[in-house]
């Protein structure tokens, strides 16, 4: 009897332990959201929220007139992210398909770990590459005077998103049951047709998830874009103009801003906008994943 109740006690203790662990992650998330929300609200005592989101000019330290408009930064953030996805998605899926379907197993054994090592390169190092290597090349190719622009940022973010996209896409291609491919080949389809029309559609949920994760990385990345995009706060005129992303702006200004001023609160408001955007991206990817999984079943 005594033994029984001890076992029961142990069981409920273990249950409580895992429950606390699970709830902790949620609490941290809610905590961060609340912190951002409460620290950004005071900003809107002095800034009109509509102006904050629609105005193109950001100049809180101006000696003439202080301006708090983040539209240019939102557009810039989306520009580099879009550019990165345009480069990284076709390339990433191509590499994943090569590794899973074409490459000799020896090649795969060597290539896959190398791709994963790419994910571990610090962002400062990649930013440095952008300054000394890609900058001059971009300036030469596009005939502009310098390479500190959105194209450079996009290329570097693509490099950083590639390992995620390749690794997860390859895993999901490998997870497609062999029977699918065998049936397709038995029906007379070529290997190319099998890959494009059977295997990739079957692995689509994983591939989409990898794209979304890559996108999340690109939106939130700070150091790399800070180093290579020139950080000009003007509204971007195109991919060849210098831009300033939301993350770079927070990183540049938070170190110097006097605490508890409108400028300080406004930086947290930018953080809140960033948080909401990444939250929406994750939500969208979740919904897409569920839709595809339901269709598959």
């Amino acid at each position: 009897m005594n033994r029984m109740s001890f076992a029961r006690l142990k069981e409920s203790a273990i249950k409580a332990f895992f429950f606390t662990n699970g709830i902790l992650a949620v609490l941290v998330l809610i905590g961060i959201f609340c912190l951002l929300l409460f620290t950004s609200v005071p900003a809107f005592r002095e800034i009109n929220i509509k102006e904050f989101l629609i105005d193109k000019n950001w100049n809180p330290t101006s000696p003439v007139k202080e301006e708090y408009g983040i539209l240019s930064m939102i557009v810039s953030t989306f520009m580099v992210t879009l550019g990165a996805l345009i480069i990284a998605v076709p390339l990433g899926i191509g590499v994943a398909a090569y590794l899973s379907d074409v490459a000799h197993w020896k090649v795969r054994e060597i290539a896959k770990p190398i791709v994963e090592v790419l994910a571990g390169i610090p962002s400062v190092v990649i930013g440095f590459l952008g300054i000394v290597l890609f900058g001059p090349i971009i300036a030469g190719i596009f005939g502009v005077s310098h390479g500190l622009n959105a194209v450079n940022g996009s290329i570097l973010l693509a490099i950083m998103a590639l390992p995620t996209i390749i690794s997860i896409s390859e895993d999901s291609l490998n997870a497609v049951p062999r029977a699918y491919a065998e049936a397709s080949l038995a029906l007379g389809a070529s290997r190319w047709q099998t890959l494009i029309r059977v295997r990739i559609p079957a692995a689509l949920s994983g591939i989409l998830a990898s794209m979304m994760l890559g996108m999340g990385r690109a939106i939130g990345e700070t150091m790399t874009v800070l180093m290579v995009t020139g950080n000009a706060p003007a509204f971007p005129k195109g991919f060849l103009s210098s831009i300033r992303t939301m993350t770079a702006n927070i990183a540049i200004e938070l170190g110097e801003v006097p605490y508890y001023t409108t400028h300080y609160y406004a930086l947290f408001a930018i953080g809140l906008v960033l948080f909401i955007i990444t939250f929406l991206v994750n939500l969208a990817s979740d919904i897409i994943l569920h839709k595809y999984q339901e269709r598959e079943q």
Binding site: A139, S145, H146, G147, L148, M227, A234, S241, S242, R244
Partner: peptide, 28 residues
């Protein structure tokens, strides 16, 4: 004269980065 910088000015991290930028950029 205490006026705003052009928003097109590239905001660099430090003196050394400006020097490198100017050396690479013919219109700088």
């Amino acid at each position: 004269g205490k006026k705003n910088y052009s928003p097109d000015m590239k905001r660099m991290n430090g003196n050394a980065q400006i020097v490198e930028g100017v050396i690479q950029d013919k219109a700088s």
